[in-house]
């Protein structure tokens, strides 16, 4: 949901959907995030999906409605898993295209890496990347595929003394539930990891390979031996296919 959290200063796009009458804190490609408080003390994020004028209405309505419901389901599923940190879902409104979610304070992994890269050693970074890998493994273990594992979609929440961090995974807008064991599931998991690899490579150019290797190690130790073997082997196939695509001009 914060897939462009750093764009918070940008004016939200004009769009026909009702806004909750609040100032946007983040404007992503798919949704606007607003922050407000419930019951006096509970910080929440309102994720308002944006209808897209470039799509024909039949397609747009279908996509928006099915995605918001799928997103709520996936978040609820992930929330129930051990060692997985996702925002809690408080309300689902498929008509207004809104989700009300627990507010997660912190920096996106993308921004967190940028700030940490410059100031401190690699141990803290390694611990965070390990959480990323383990969390993806735990989600994948139940056949849940996130579908958009970019570095903008992990939030790092640091403890007050900055010695400990909890990583949250957010934006299940493209998530899909797959059968736990099937070839399509293996493929989807490999593609999920491939998206993360490429997101790391596109922004954190220098250290991307090392970062992703750490994520993969944690993914392996968080998965069953069988799953890790199948998915990592498929990841090589997905990568190779990626290269082949440059064949014909």
């Amino acid at each position: 949901m914060f897939d462009a959290i750093e764009m918070g200063s940008q004016t939200p796009a004009s769009q026909p959907a009702a806004s909750p009458g609040l100032a946007a804190v983040a404007q992503g490609a798919e949704a606007t995030i607003y922050r407000t408080r419930l019951f006096g003390d509970q910080d929440v994020a309102i994720k308002q999906r944006l209808p897209k004028r470039y799509r024909i209405p039949e397609l747009d309505e279908h996509l928006n409605r099915s995605r918001i419901i799928a997103e709520a389901r996936a978040l609820a599923r992930a929330w129930s898993l051990p060692h997985v940190h996702v925002p809690a879902v408080y309300l689902v409104d498929p008509h207004r295209l809104r989700l009300v979610l627990e507010w997660i304070e912190g920096l996106s992994l993308r921004d967190w890496l940028r700030t940490r890269e410059s100031v401190e050693g690699t141990t803290h970074i390694a611990a965070v990347l390990e959480q990323v890998g383990r969390m993806v493994a735990a989600i994948h273990a139940v056949g849940l595929i996130h579908g958009d594992l970019t570095t903008s979609n992990f939030i790092v929440r640091e403890s007050a003394d900055r010695n400990e961090s909890t990583v949250f995974v957010i934006d299940f807008g493209l998530a899909q539930q797959y059968p736990i064991q099937s070839d399509t599931t293996v493929e989807a998991k490999a593609v999920d990891l491939y998206v993360l690899e490429r997101a790391l490579a596109s922004v954190h150019v220098q250290q991307a390979a090392a970062y992703f290797a750490q994520v993969l190690r944690a993914y392996e130790s968080g998965s069953s031996i069988e799953n890790a073997k199948l998915v990592l082997r498929r990841l090589d196939v997905v990568r190779a296919r990626g290269r082949k695509r440059a064949m014909i001009g």
Partner: peptide, 13 residues
């Protein structure tokens, strides 16, 4: 008439 077809977006791919 719009005939529904698979819509396959995975992240930025």
């Amino acid at each position: 008439h719009y005939v529904p077809l698979p819509y396959s977006v995975k992240g930025m791919d």
